[in-house]
Amino acid sequence: MANDLRSRLDAAANGAQRADVSLRFGNKVTFDAGATMTAGGLLAVAVLVSTILLSTSLLVGSARRKR
Protein backbone atom coordinates (compact mmCIF):
# COMPACT_ATOMS: atom_id res chain seq x y z
CA MET A 1 0.00 0.00 0.00
CA ALA A 2 2.84 2.40 0.81
CA ASN A 3 4.55 1.72 -2.53
CA ASP A 4 1.31 2.42 -4.38
CA LEU A 5 0.92 5.77 -2.62
CA ARG A 6 4.58 6.57 -3.30
CA SER A 7 4.21 5.85 -7.04
CA ARG A 8 1.11 8.05 -7.20
CA LEU A 9 2.90 10.93 -5.50
CA ASP A 10 5.94 10.54 -7.78
CA ALA A 11 3.69 10.54 -10.86
CA ALA A 12 1.86 13.66 -9.66
CA ALA A 13 5.15 15.44 -8.98
CA ASN A 14 6.36 14.68 -12.52
CA GLY A 15 3.15 15.98 -14.11
CA ALA A 16 2.08 12.50 -15.13
CA GLN A 17 -1.42 11.10 -15.14
CA ARG A 18 -2.15 7.69 -13.65
CA ALA A 19 -5.03 5.31 -14.25
CA ASP A 20 -5.78 2.08 -12.39
CA VAL A 21 -8.36 -0.61 -13.00
CA SER A 22 -9.28 -3.68 -11.00
CA LEU A 23 -11.51 -6.44 -12.40
CA ARG A 24 -12.88 -9.40 -10.52
CA PHE A 25 -14.30 -12.52 -12.17
CA GLY A 26 -16.06 -14.66 -9.62
CA ASN A 27 -14.43 -15.22 -6.25
CA LYS A 28 -10.98 -16.41 -7.33
CA VAL A 29 -9.86 -14.44 -10.38
CA THR A 30 -8.80 -10.79 -10.15
CA PHE A 31 -7.01 -8.59 -12.63
CA ASP A 32 -5.24 -5.39 -11.58
CA ALA A 33 -3.64 -3.03 -14.10
CA GLY A 34 -2.28 0.48 -14.05
CA ALA A 35 -0.73 2.94 -16.46
CA THR A 36 1.19 6.18 -16.07
CA MET A 37 1.55 8.64 -18.91
CA THR A 38 3.23 12.02 -19.20
CA ALA A 39 2.18 14.81 -21.53
CA GLY A 40 5.02 13.89 -23.91
CA GLY A 41 3.85 10.27 -24.01
CA LEU A 42 0.30 11.36 -24.73
CA LEU A 43 1.51 13.54 -27.59
CA ALA A 44 3.56 10.65 -29.01
CA VAL A 45 0.52 8.35 -28.95
CA ALA A 46 -1.60 11.02 -30.67
CA VAL A 47 1.00 11.42 -33.44
CA LEU A 48 1.21 7.65 -33.97
CA VAL A 49 -2.58 7.23 -34.14
CA SER A 50 -3.00 10.14 -36.57
CA THR A 51 -0.22 8.78 -38.80
CA ILE A 52 -1.84 5.35 -38.88
CA LEU A 53 -5.26 6.82 -39.70
CA LEU A 54 -3.83 9.04 -42.43
CA SER A 55 -1.92 6.20 -44.08
CA THR A 56 -4.99 3.94 -43.91
CA SER A 57 -7.17 6.53 -45.62
CA LEU A 58 -4.56 6.99 -48.36
CA LEU A 59 -4.38 3.23 -48.93
CA VAL A 60 -8.16 2.90 -49.13
CA GLY A 61 -8.37 5.88 -51.48
CA SER A 62 -5.76 4.46 -53.84
CA ALA A 63 -7.37 1.01 -53.77
CA ARG A 64 -10.76 2.47 -54.77
CA ARG A 65 -9.39 4.63 -57.56
CA LYS A 66 -10.32 3.37 -61.01
CA ARG A 67 -7.47 2.65 -63.37
Rank of each mutant, 00 (worst) to 15 (best):
M1Q: 09
M1A: 03
A2E: 08
A2H: 10
D4L: 15
D4E: 05
L5H: 02
R6M: 10
R6P: 07
R6V: 08
S7R: 09
S7E: 12
S7F: 01
R8S: 00
R8P: 08
R8I: 06
L9M: 12
L9Q: 10
D10P: 08
D10K: 15
D10A: 15
A11P: 07
A11I: 03
A11G: 05
A11Y: 06
A11W: 02
A13F: 14
N14D: 13
N14L: 15
G15M: 03
G15P: 04
G15A: 10
G15E: 01
G15T: 09
G15I: 01
G15F: 08
G15N: 10
G15Y: 10
A16E: 04
A16C: 12
A16Y: 03
A16N: 13
Q17M: 11
Q17F: 12
Q17D: 01
Q17S: 14
R18Q: 11
R18W: 01
A19N: 09
A19P: 04
A19H: 09
D20F: 11
D20T: 15
V21D: 09
S22G: 09
S22W: 10
S22H: 13
L23E: 00
L23K: 14
R24V: 00
R24S: 08
F25E: 05
F25D: 09
F25Y: 13
F25S: 09
F25N: 02
F25V: 12
G26V: 03
N27E: 14
N27K: 15
K28I: 13
V29L: 15
V29E: 03
V29M: 08
T30L: 01
T30I: 11
T30V: 11
T30R: 11
T30E: 07
F31Y: 14
D32F: 11
D32V: 11
A33T: 10
G34H: 12
G34F: 06
G34C: 02
A35T: 14
A35R: 13
T36V: 13
T36C: 07
T36I: 14
T36F: 02
M37R: 06
M37Q: 00
T38I: 10
T38R: 00
A39M: 14
A39T: 15
G40L: 14
L42C: 02
L42N: 10
L42F: 04
L43G: 00
L43D: 05
L43Q: 12
L43S: 06
A44K: 07
A44F: 01
V45M: 02
V45N: 01
V45P: 05
V45C: 04
A46N: 09
V47P: 06
V47T: 05
V47H: 03
L48A: 04
L48M: 13
V49L: 00
V49I: 07
V49S: 00
S50C: 04
S50M: 07
T51A: 04
I52M: 03
I52N: 03
I52A: 05
L53H: 06
L53K: 10
L54H: 07
L54K: 00
L54R: 08
T56V: 08
S57D: 01
S57Y: 02
S57P: 04
L58F: 13
L59C: 07
L59F: 02
L59E: 03
L59A: 10
V60R: 03
G61E: 07
G61F: 13
S62K: 14
A63H: 04
A63Y: 02
A63K: 13
A63I: 02
A63T: 12
R64T: 05
R65W: 05
R65I: 06
K66H: 06
